[in-house]
Design a protein around this nucleic acid. Structure first.
Lengths: 205, 205, 205, 205
DNA sequence: AATGAATGAGATTTCATTCAT
DNA sequence: TATGAATGAAATCTCATTCAT
């Protein structure tokens, strides 16, 4: 099978790092601790990652890739169900599935989500801003809508994308602290309603 | 005069800490460095603060107090101009001035804002979550509106308050990275329009 | 008194480093060992020197300065005894006292001499070549002799200076390994006879 | 053919070690690096050499053997051209060819020469002093001259041999740093003139 | 109250060496 | 014989904290 073996030292290090970063925080964890938890020697840690931030970056890029894939998969379903011709433009329809995918992803990978997007991020300046990366595709989609006149031209798409994602991330982090705070469905409802595609596209009509 | 003297060791330490935290990040700064920058001995540092997180907490609480004061002052003006009796309930009217005050505060104190709300926050768990603290008064105001039937009862006020503030903070941090990204007025417009008071109160009418 | 106190941490570190480098060699010594021998904490080591090579460089520059001073003092005596007018040019007369001073210096500071000029020099490339530094003044003196026609013009003064000093250093290091190998006076005789000033100045007459 | 194949793991290790030692210095190179550069596994390194100093020793002994052979070949030519009977004693005639051979050897194998005789020699005490080894044959030759009365009896042959070779080595290392510093012929001239055989034999006549 | 040299626990990092394949 | 992932002892270096002045 293609699934990476857990006996693999790198996999064990990533798993140990994820769980420790999530539980203790980036700075209260050190390379020795991660290696010990992973059940490998400290030398093994350094033959796989140049330092703990390198491991953190790997966790983040995997998380971002996973989240992106989940959103795309969700959108693709909608597109296949609906009319293919109008698909690309129907961001409004895509908004809810995309939000839904994000909420589910956070629910299923709470540690990865917290580690990747959480506030406790000492090495933040060492690896580029993570939210910005997620904002880019959304901004592009909004720009495409603007280009075909489906979105009011005076909207700052970068600002909107960034504002929305800050909200999504902040809300999900708050929710993950105590999932009893809200129903996942209410979360999706609230976020989808605030999604730029839902807000501005409607008004542009 | 009430203004603290800059020759005051504590003031010098706070100023040096703020500038260093903002420039280098919380973890790449240590107490010795802060003391040297402040032009005082390391011993003096420890006679004023128990550790660097204590100084950081002081910066944060001053920043939060300053921001709260700025919002209140802005609202008070509106209230004084309008009718006093209805004042407490007129959250819709207060939303824009409050957002405006926040944007101006971030603009005038970029370092303090970044240090207090920024993502690079290693000691995060050591000092309570900062955004939550700001969310409480907003949630209370929304709850009061709900109590008098001016706001739809099925709205989760905690969720809304938190969602909005995540957005406000995330957007302002992004803007401070490069203020040429947007006009301050556009920022206020966008944020005010997303403000729960503007959104839900209107719809409840 | 101007003499540096031995209670001074830096002095103790320099003394411990000198003795350890001489006995064990540059690479078999580490900063912890030096600190322990000096009777200070490891932190004290790093608050005085950035690493062990920094301490080594300090030893070297002090040794070079001491050797240079010893040579100059020896020459100055000769000059004061002889006729002042001809003094500067009379390198031939200066050669023997200079060599004598070097031999005595090596005899009195065998550890410093070995550490500074010895072959076991791992950090060599990190701090400029030490022999070259000593060769420069000698080359300059030879050049002055050439300028006034007291030295054959076709002599490569840099080459001669370097060649002579390689010999002086190599011979003294060999001698210090076992001083019974030769009498100090024989050493001075042999070296002085090979000195460029003795060799080439005579022949130029 | 007698020439060792380059595909041979040992040859590749020796070549990689030589080039790395020369470029990076003995201490900044480790066995893993040498193996990687040689294109063989680290395990292969250890099946050929017990550690990096073993490889270094091998390089040195090959270099010393090569240099000795070059000197002998040069002398043999002189001897064969001249009268065989007097050959052994005619050290004066042999001096120049021997020096010439050394200069050419250094010119043709700069890395090997630098690694073998260079100052940066951390493991120096682990493998016997290299210059001394070269000094012995010269001292023997001088001693034979003394025995037959061709060399003044009060000369310390060990001291002379050592002094001369220090000079030869020091000068050649200096020259190799920047070969434009002197013509090879000038080097040979200068060194040959300082050679004990040239100096003392002549004077003993 | 202010100072800053000194401290050492602990984190980071290197690299010679082993051993299962 | 060749391999290279894994190892951990040991070295380097940081920095919060103390304390004599």
């Amino acid at each position: 099978m293609a699934r990476p073996k857990l006996e693999n030292a790198e996999s064990k290090l990533l798993a140990a790092g994820l769980s420790l970063f999530a539980k203790e925080g980036t700075e209260r964890v050190n390379s020795n601790l991660i290696a010990r938890r992973a059940g490998v020697g400290i030398g093994t840690f350094y033959s796989h990652f140049s330092d703990k931030y390198s491991l953190l970056r790997e966790i983040e890029s995997r998380t971002l890739a996973g989240l992106r894939a989940a959103r795309l998969a969700a959108i693709r379903e909608v597109v296949q169900v609906g009319q293919v011709g109008k698909a690309v433009l129907d961001l409004a329809q895509q908004a809810r599935p995309s939000v839904d995918a994000a909420v589910r992803f956070a629910e299923q990978h709470p540690e990865a989500y917290r580690v990747t997007f959480g506030r406790e991020r000492a090495g933040a300046s060492r690896h580029g801003p993570v939210v910005s990366e997620s904002a880019r595709p959304l901004a592009e989609a909004l720009r495409r809508l603007q280009a075909v006149g489906r979105l009011t031209a005076d909207l700052d798409v970068d600002l909107s994308a960034r504002a929305y994602l800050s909200m999504e991330v902040g809300t999900l982090l708050w929710w993950l602290e105590d999932p009893s705070r809200a129903e996942a469905t209410d979360l999706v409802d609230t976020l989808a309603r605030m999604h730029p595609a839902a807000q501005w596209v409607d008004q542009a009509r």
